[in-house]
Nucleic acid binder design. Structure first.
Lengths: 121, 121
DNA sequence: TTAGATATATTACATATGTAATCTTTCTTT
DNA sequence: AAAGAAAGATTACATATGTAATATATCTAA
């Protein structure tokens, strides 16, 4: 695997939007984030540009607008974050947390089977 | 539950040591971290002091040494981190995350069985 | 064709973080 | 008692991050 650049907390929100739908314009990103976040449009543009600088996001020109899209697979980034997250915790505290998480998620039968298969490895 | 201060990545390593055993001296913290981390003793002292500044760690004087101990419950910090971690992810990316978890943790047979039982709910 | 409007580019600035080194105060050991 | 060792306090400094504002280029409407 390549080295995935560090994506900050705020930048993750932008990536989430792009993984949901892309390519999209900066204004669409802004529109999708303004409900949940209290960021000014300029702030969001800064985040987008930083992600471009990190090669996490690319764009094509469409007239004088840009159409942005993610350059990194979501699964890779998630895996990376998870690894660092789990790396911070001591082993003992993870199981209860994971238990709560699994309970909270509604998993399909298929997903459950797949998880069990992963556990068997 | 008060407002838990932000604990950085590096600071987490110090907190882990303190949750494992406390109160302990700075030198003991350093000794326990030097195997895993490649930090200089001074670096670790800086981290300790920052944690003290954040009221995440307290100390008692023992002669001219200090004995440090955590001021924050591990469970609270873990919950906080987990919340922020899950907040970054879109729903449906659970599987890669679990893959990382399973890979990272060395789970015993018992633990695997326990997780499978949880999945069977 | 000219003044907005609008998109992107550049600049700003405080705080956080990683990563230490140097300074000061005490203990110890000759 | 003086010098060196050791603990803690203070200072350092580059990069990251949150959070924008200002500058510039370009399109559009009057």
């Amino acid at each position: 695997m390549e080295n995935i650049p560090k994506i900050s907390d705020a930048e993750w929100q932008v990536m989430k939007v792009l993984w949901e739908k892309s390519p999209i314009t900066a204004n669409e990103i802004i529109a999708r984030l303004e409900d949940e976040q209290s960021w000014k449009p300029k702030t969001i543009r800064t985040l987008i540009n930083r992600l471009v600088g990190k090669n996490a996001v690319g764009f094509d020109k469409d007239g004088r607008q840009y159409l942005y899209y993610p350059l990194l697979p979501e699964a890779d980034c998630v895996r990376d974050e998870a690894r660092s997250f789990f790396g911070r915790m001591r082993a003992g505290v993870l199981k209860p947390m994971l238990a709560a998480f699994i309970e909270q998620q509604k998993l399909s039968k298929d997903e459950i089977e797949e998880l069990k298969r992963m556990l068997d490895r």
